[in-house]
Design a protein around this nucleic acid. Structure first.
Lengths: 225, 225
DNA sequence: CACGGAGTTGAAGGCTTTCTGAAAACGGCG
DNA sequence: CGCCGTTTTCAGAAAGCCTTCAACTCCGTG
């Protein structure tokens, strides 16, 4: 969740509410910062103030839209129609006035995520890597033509790795992305094992999910593919 | 495209979006105006607000239906009441809650047109999945050659699932699409059970409507089919 | 070659999610 | 108004996952 807003007070307020709901909140005070953040971390939704110092939220919206289909929710001081229409026409997904309670804003964000989530994954064809195929919409993977069921958590990690091939993730990083801030990091190892048991030909000598000693794990797509 | 709606703000918003998609939009603020417009210009689809000042959208729907088979999509503030059922029973073709984004509304309209277009001359064939056959037009399903009756709500969910094979829907998502924004999500589970009792060979071990633990439900068409 | 830390394994309790059965509320219809 | 089928709610039971933990193996270093 990326919050684009230059008033510190509102950032603090919204951050509190969003984090209470389990969102990981990144804040950006300008359009450029927002674009940078979008490239840096996995962002599932953008909450964007219409009025930023110096630039219009609409411009920012356009720039974000240019490089990502991420859901965008506008946040505006006034509830003028023209704003609403412009925002939605630029590809935003919803529009909330600031006079709404934070709780309400959070609800709208959740609604947008629910709508966008399945719809977007449905449009996207499954990821294919040789003998491994990951179908986000069906929440399932196909290994050597065989359908393999995954639990919610397993799939979350698999998805993370598969969407960033050959990128190393440290245990801590994975933990923060999937679990959040609190808990026992060793759980990551347990899930890596489970994934290997399900997708590796020989779990003892993993080829898809490899261990980078002292660093973390990495998903290596098969060469041939 | 005839838009029957008495709130100017919504008229403007929807008009923008529909026109951006190439629709020619006529607006009517009352039932009588709608009927008149229907007689005056060629209307390919009606977008009808359930709550109009003074009269119910259902009455308007009846009046429109009396003189035309034009596709009708209901637009409602909330899907809480049995609006949807009433609407569909009156011959409406789809039903969208206003909390949906305009983009989504446009999508639904397009879907209805796609459906209605060819269907009006040649009947659209029902969905067939091995031993299960779902006939949207007739609002009924045939399991193993046996006709099985469904209540309105049951069928709505069945329709949703069947139209998106192998796509996982979370409880929340289903609830929002069928019921609307408010209510007790646990109702979804109850209906899933009822569907399974009616279409599964062994409801204890469902094969058509499978549970994706921690995520939601998914309709899996039989392999052979 | 022995040591320490990093990574892996296996198994079990706790806990959340899901299912079940049944009763209450609702809405349409006579 | 009272009946009947549908929808919603609820609490208890069952199912299955998530976490934890301790023992074990592996890797790099001295």
């Amino acid at each position: 969740m990326l919050l684009v807003e230059d008033e510190a007070e509102i950032v603090g307020l919204m951050r509190d509410f969003l984090e209470a709901e389990g969102f990981e909140v990144h804040a950006a005070a300008s359009g450029s910062a927002a674009v940078a953040a979008l490239g840096r971390s996995r962002v599932d939704c953008v909450l964007l103030d219409v009025m930023l110092r110096g630039e219009s939220g609409f411009d920012v919206c356009r720039r974000l839209r240019d490089r990502s289909g991420v859901p965008i929710v506008f946040l505006s001081a006034r509830g003028q129609d023209s704003d609403k229409i412009r925002g939605l026409r630029l590809g935003a997904d919803d529009y909330v006035v600031k006079s709404a309670t934070p709780t309400e804003v959070v609800e709208r964000v959740k609604a947008v995520l629910r709508r966008a989530g399945p719809a977007r994954s449905a449009e996207r064809p499954p990821h294919r890597f040789g003998r491994l195929e990951v179908d986000l919409a069906a929440h399932e993977a196909i290994v050597d033509g065989r359908r393999v069921p995954f639990t919610a958590r397993e799939f979350a990690i698999l998805e993370l790795l598969v969407e960033h091939p050959r990128q190393v993730f440290s245990r801590d990083h994975i933990f923060e992305l999937i679990w959040g801030d609190f808990g026992d990091r060793s759980a990551v190892g347990v899930y890596i094992r489970k994934l290997r048991e399900k997708i590796e030909t020989d779990p003892r000598h993993p080829e898809l999910i490899v261990t980078v000693w002292g660093v973390g794990y990495r998903f290596d797509p098969p060469r041939a593919a």
